[in-house]
Design a protein around this nucleic acid. Structure first.
Lengths: 219, 219, 219, 219
DNA sequence: GATGAATGAGGTTTCATTCAT
DNA sequence: GATGAATGAAACCTCATTCAT
């Protein structure tokens, strides 16, 4: 699913070590950002030499992307679980929103990595990353919505792709609001409540209300 | 409205020079990102010496924030124009959406600066920035929605602050989708169309439909 | 003839393996130069482990010198063939020049290795290398010229050693001109013709003319 | 004459400093070779900061080439002095040979730099360097020989360009023999005498004899 | 006010060599 | 004999910031 950005030697490393490196890497990249993350620090914290680090990953960028892929894979698996059910769209939406809220803090660092790439300035790299990261999710949303359209579960005058796009915008913003410093503060400015203290159910129910009319055609 | 991040000497500079410095700074920060932007290059392109630059701004960060404030001021003024009318909320929303679409590319660099700060990793700075940038906008949305609620123009069971939050999430995502490389590609993945070739009216009308039921109570 | 620069283990390796290692080594050193050649890459391309490489050669330098010796041996054998005949000196010279032209490209990599050591910066090593590489050839030239002198085939007022030196300078320069990038370009600058397209016979005959008066005494 | 490989800032530096940097650079590159030369060491010995070094030269390569050009310029000027006279070719040759012997040790480091580039492995760079370094010299030789040919001062059946090429090969080899460790040892192996103790006049006269018949047509 | 030369810490990356298995 | 994972010193280069003029 993802383009391999590590060297063969990394595959041969023990699971424990692979785990450790990515964990430490994710922590470093999430807390300092790509530019300020220090590969020597990651190696030191992962308790391997810098030379070995470069036996595993050709460049800092490759290490970063591999960390990112690991985080994205985990998030994608969670989404998969929900989307493969044959619940009605509104039910799926509710589940997705709730899962987003619940898991965002647990996987805060993964989402910070995701946030990190949204400001990629190199068009080529931005395109490649978006392709890797967004394709899978977008397909799931678009397919589900198209099915719902076919069953007339949603307004017929909505374009399923734009619909999916708007929906994911809301979810993505929510993810960031739970995890990234700037967005967390923004959340508080809008709602008046710190996101850690906000009643999750309220967010879920309000967001559902916000979007439900689009879903519940002629009801 | 914004905390002053430049030195007195900058105020005393000619308008033309102030203009040029910020313009060049915005271009550099927008195209390379904060970390990769080079303050010596900005000075050179603005045709002033690096020494003078440091007479105007104490640090690279101060220059960046001043550039950001300039961009945000311009975007905020445009929003002000719309929000101060006494149109119905749905009308305002339509105007805001359309303005967002229309102006995003024209002011692409401002939005890129905005995008840049959303991945600020220092909590202290992130809070300060969010406070500066989001307060004004959020107030306008919240006030408008509260007024609409009072007039029963929107569903009564919606929390106005969360409502404003969701709404702004959609608009913010749209802005980024028009301007930032990653989000532009993401837009194309979702919609199948490059954002530059997408029919603007379609985006406006679809987004309006997506949110209108929340607005148009008792229909 | 050459100082042994490999470990005993290398002798015990199969001929095929020895062959392969030196071949790959010569290719790497010739194409990248000593400093930029990578011994790990040589091991990989020779399909042996780096550990085994160090069982065969104590250092990178030893591997290089062994590659060099192999190349030099081959070149020396070719020269031997010519010099051991009892042709007149001018005939020998013609044969040597022609052979130099003909074989230079075939054995380009050997000559590149030779060229590589001419810029050795460590005096100790430079002396040792020169001793190894030049002794055999120089003896052949000096002996042949001394014999010709005894037979009055060449001008009697020429110092046979300097004569041999000048002669080899011409041949050495010609070798480099056929093989090393810089010297190839220099050849083209002087002659106006790319060395690959230059008529070999013209080079042979012109060079013979250039030196012949020294050879053909009493004309 | 040479492509500029330094930044404008270098031109603005004091002559003393420019002198110092190139001197130190030439010494470092000549004694250690390009790869092993250390830019930080050059900066330290030239008593400037490494940052400033990079304000003067964009890369290590640029610094090297600038050092090289400086050396080549000096050698070329010396040659110019000789070639612009209207001496007969044989007289010029004698002067050139003598000058080569005399000056080689004085300017040993320049010649070591020249030697350094003859093993350039990147074809593109090799071509560019050869073009810069050889064009001027080769023109002088070729022109002088062509004039001599016109005056029937040399054998009419010699190609002036090849003639110039062979001649320069002898001079180049001689230069290296006076300066570069490997070639110095080679000189001793051929002649039996250390080049520093060799009677210069003997070298001059023997080399003249070696080439004179080509020059002195029908005498 | 204005200049721009100067600094130097710090980060990424390479690769010869070792050694436990 | 054979492997290849592991090491870590060291080199090139960048750039925010200072300060003498």
């Amino acid at each position: 699913m993802f383009e391999k950005r590590y060297k063969d030697a990394f595959e041969r490393a023990s699971d424990e070590r692979k785990e450790r490196i990515l964990e430490v890497g994710i922590e470093e990249f999430a807390s300092k950002g790509y530019e300020n993350a220090n590969i020597n620090v990651i190696a030191k914290n992962a308790e391997i030499s810098i030379g070995l680090m470069y036996k595993y990953f050709a460049t800092k960028e490759d290490l970063f992307v591999t960390c990112l892929q690991r985080g994205m894979q985990i998030l994608d698996d969670a989404l998969d679980e929900i989307m493969k059910s044959d619940d009605k769209l509104l039910i799926k939406a509710e589940k997705v929103i709730r899962t987003t809220c619940t898991h965002s803090k647990k996987n805060a660092n993964y989402i910070k990595l995701y946030n990190e790439i949204t400001s990629e300035k190199n068009d080529e790299r931005a395109r490649a990353l978006a392709e890797e990261i967004e394709s899978s999710t977008s397909k799931k949303y678009i397919t589900s919505i198209a099915q719902a359209l076919a069953k007339a579960d949603v307004r017929g005058d909505l374009d399923p792709r734009l619909f999916a796009f708007f929906l994911d915008n809301l979810l993505m913003s929510l993810q960031f609001s739970y995890t990234c410093d700037y967005y967390r503060q923004r959340f508080e400015i809008y709602t008046g409540v710190n996101v850690d203290e906000m009643d999750e159910e309220k967010v879920v129910s309000q967001l559902l209300k916000f979007i439900e009319s689009a879903f519940t055609f002629e009801k």
